[in-house]
């Protein structure tokens, strides 16, 4: 565990907490894409298939459980919770997310470490995670105004993979550890997708103004 990896995990964890706080405190999931949340639930469920077979550390297992359970809880709040499901901006959340799932399945079948059940699912989860934010970014762009907590949620979620890239660079030089090119490439794509959002986030932060995305 190095400082970049820890920073990555903490920003990831923080993004989830901010999202839960937003839904709980405002009793609203407006501005949040259910499509993106469903994709994340799928990402964690397919990546952490090793939860009960390979023990790495208590930290690792706890974080896996947190990410699986929080993503499933958020999907539940948006689909079924009597108070919050009505606040979901269904009409703005029209991204065809099954296309992302389909493309990720095809990529995982073509490019993986080994052709085993778990490795193919692992690669699938990496590809899907890289693009899972797209429905959320499209929803924000459509609604224009972004509330503070939603803006912070997306910001921390973007920062997380950027820290992971620094972590891979650090590990490459210190441990002779190399991440497979699959995670490198997907991680870069994932972080690049946030470039536009980061830009407007910093501009609004610098001007102490409300975050607004251009139409």
């Amino acid at each position: 565990m190095n400082i970049f990896r820890l920073a990555g995990d903490m920003t990831h964890l923080f993004s989830v907490l901010v999202l839960l706080l937003k839904i709980y405190a405002t009793k609203s999931c407006s501005g949040i894409s259910l499509k993106t949340q469903e994709l994340y639930a799928l990402v964690f469920l397919t990546r952490y298939l090793d939860l009960f077979t390979d023990f790495i550390s208590v930290y690792n297992s706890v974080m896996k459980v947190v990410f699986i359970s929080s993503s499933v809880a958020i999907v539940w709040c948006m689909r079924y919770h009597p108070l919050t499901r009505r606040t979901y901006d269904k009409d703005l959340d029209t991204f065809r997310h099954y296309i992302l799932v389909g493309v990720s399945i095809i990529l995982a079948l073509l490019f993986h470490d080994r052709f085993t059940f778990r490795e193919v699912f692992w690669a699938f989860s990496i590809y899907l995670e890289a693009v899972a934010i797209l429905p959320q970014l499209v929803l924000l762009q459509r609604s224009g105004n972004v509330d503070n907590l939603t803006g912070q949620y997306v910001f921390f979620l973007g920062a997380y993979r950027a820290f992971y890239i620094l972590n891979w660079i650090y590990r490459y030089f210190t441990e002779n550890h190399y991440s497979r090119w699959i995670s490198w490439l997907a991680g870069f794509v994932q972080t690049a997708l946030y470039a536009d959002f980061f830009y407007y986030y910093f501009v609004s932060w610098k001007n102490n103004a409300k975050l607004q995305l251009p139409a």
Partner: peptide, 10 residues
């Protein structure tokens, strides 16, 4: 293959 993959990461 040589080297480890990233399965110790999240």
């Amino acid at each position: 293959y040589s080297g480890t993959t990233t399965k110790d990461e999240l």
